[in-house]
Amino acid sequence: MLNNSYERNPDRYGSYAATSPQISFLNQVYGWMCLGLLLTAGISGWMAATPGLVEKLMMQRGLFWGLLIGELLLVIWLSAGIGRMSSTTATVAFLGYAALNGVVLSGIFLVYTQASLFSTFLATAATFGGMSFYGYTTKRDLSSIGSLCIMALWGVIIGSIINLFWANNMLYWLVTYLGIAVFVGLTAYDTQKIRELAMNISDSDSSLVRKLAILGALRLYLDFINLFLLLLRIFGNRR
């Protein structure tokens, strides 16, 4: 079962020497994550090159919210059903989500300056890279931090929904800073779980390895994208 690969083993937090299958698995995880980010950025940039197209999308609120709901359902379907789908289906679903996210996020190119988008991306990459490195190398069990971050994430989601109707400035910034802390913590936690998973990987079932790599890439992709959007609220300069 896929979920069993994420169970905690106290012996996994000591010294760690990756074998060839494990290195290959980790390369797949980060490779798919980076490909997803590139696809999202490429589609967002392509749409932003036609401002009228983006403005039309933003004005059609029903379509825009439909895309957001579609994204959510696609993530839930991929995360919950990856064990039952083929590796090809999992790959297409992940890349489809990244592409769809590029469409949804295209509006930020019209709201923020390119310089602030680039500087925020660099800040996100540095933060993500540092926390991912920490999660990979630390001997500390981050399960308690991960559980706390997941609970706090629900607070961020609920707070964000409430503020859609209330539009309170204090709540906006509270959700922003709490969200940054949550995704910083989740980056380290998810990386440790992926490292943990890699220790049980063998190259005997390439289809299963591909699906697990896609699942790991999705988690890290979501951590990166959400951290970027929250940091953009702070460092982004509006046009």
Rank of each mutant, 00 (worst) to 15 (best):
Y6T: 07
A18I: 08
Q22K: 12
Q22V: 09
I23R: 12
F25M: 04
L26V: 09
N27Y: 05
W32Y: 12
W32M: 02
W32R: 03
M33I: 05
L35M: 13
L37E: 08
L37H: 13
L39S: 03
I43A: 07
G45R: 14
W46A: 14
P51S: 07
E55I: 12
M59A: 12
G62A: 07
L72W: 12
L73G: 06
I76P: 05
G81T: 00
I82V: 15
R84S: 00
M85Q: 00
S87R: 09
S87I: 06
Y97D: 11
A99Y: 07
N101C: 10
N101A: 09
G102P: 04
G107W: 11
Y112K: 11
Y112N: 07
Q114D: 11
L122A: 10
L122I: 15
A126I: 12
G130D: 06
S132E: 10
R140W: 08
S143V: 13
S144Q: 13
L148R: 07
A152I: 03
L153H: 05
W154H: 13
V156Q: 10
I158S: 10
G159L: 03
S160R: 13
N163V: 02
L164N: 10
N168Y: 04
N169G: 03
N169E: 12
L171W: 07
W173E: 04
T176W: 01
Y177M: 08
Y177D: 02
I180T: 01
I180F: 02
F183Q: 03
G185C: 09
T187M: 10
I194C: 01
A198D: 01
S202L: 05
S206C: 04
R210M: 15
L212T: 01
N226S: 06
L227Q: 10
I234G: 01
I234D: 01
